[in-house]
Simulated scan of single mutants.
Amino acid sequence: MRNKIVDVKNVSAAMALLENLLTRSQIVPGMGLIHGESGFGKTTALQYLFNLDTTNGVYVRCCASDTPTSILNRIAKECGLVSTGRAYQTLDSIIECVRRNEFSLFVDEADYVVGSKKIMESFRDIYDNTEQPVVLVGMEEIARRISHRKQLHNRISEWVEFKPADLQDVATFAYELMEIDEHIQLDDAVLDHIRVKSRGVVRTILSALSKIERSVNGNPPPDGVVTMDDISSLDLFMTVARN
């Protein structure tokens, strides 16, 4: 399987979110939110945005044990700053660095800290004092929880809900990532089987495609089309036997 980011619908939506934040009018708030269920590719898409040559930003990942001091220290480190140990001083240093360098701030796994008023207000303070884009990423519940924080919610002008991969997405993953003979294709029934059984979860889709790839390279179909019969003996999805 090739190691690359595939421009499926969720990735395209995330790219549009960042572009809209970067090119927004000065009167439009500049915070963004990417949310959705686990396994739909949020972190992968966020890291892709962060690593684009055109992106000038700072990426941090929240942890379940984070405190206001720990998360600010992590942001400061990514900004190339030496933490002072006092949260308010660290925040001031971050604000100055973000403003001076025109950094965008990408905060992954923000659902871990959405319950902390101090941490969420720190993200808002960074935005308010720099007007540089701040993109929060979290699970499906984060949107509802942020909606109860009106001061923060009112600053979010762009939001994307990551959805399960559809049939076209699965076909794109297969075409772009599978390292098989270019004349071999997966039948639509196979692709839809993967979509249904995976429930659109990207990790599960890639795992199934990887197993098909190995099978096809070892025993390619004579007519060049991988059918349901060809994959019937493959354990593409983890099943638990019941006694």
Results as ranks from 00 to 15, higher is better:
Y127S: 00
Q168E: 09
Q168M: 11
V226Q: 00
V58P: 02
S157F: 09
M178N: 09
Q168D: 08
S12M: 09
I142H: 04
V11A: 05
K150P: 01
S25M: 13
H153M: 11
S198A: 14
I212N: 02
M1I: 07
V82K: 15
D166N: 14
Y88W: 13
A189Q: 09
R242L: 08
L236Q: 03
H193K: 15
L236H: 01
K77E: 09
A110T: 05
G218R: 09
R124E: 04
T67P: 11
G224V: 01
S207P: 07
F173A: 05
T227I: 02
L33R: 08
L186V: 09
T43Y: 06
D181R: 12
A208M: 10
M1Y: 02
Y127I: 04
I194M: 05
H153C: 13
R195W: 05
D66H: 01
W159D: 12
L105I: 10
D53Y: 13
V134W: 00
L72K: 10
V113Q: 04
V216C: 11
V160D: 05
P29M: 14
H193T: 14
L17C: 02
D229C: 12
I95Q: 12
A110K: 00
S70C: 10
P29Q: 15
V82I: 15
T69H: 11
E37V: 15
L206C: 13
G138A: 06
I205H: 06
V202R: 02
D230R: 04
L72T: 03
N10V: 04
V160S: 02
H183K: 15
L167F: 07
I184Q: 07
V113Y: 00
A13H: 10
C79Y: 03
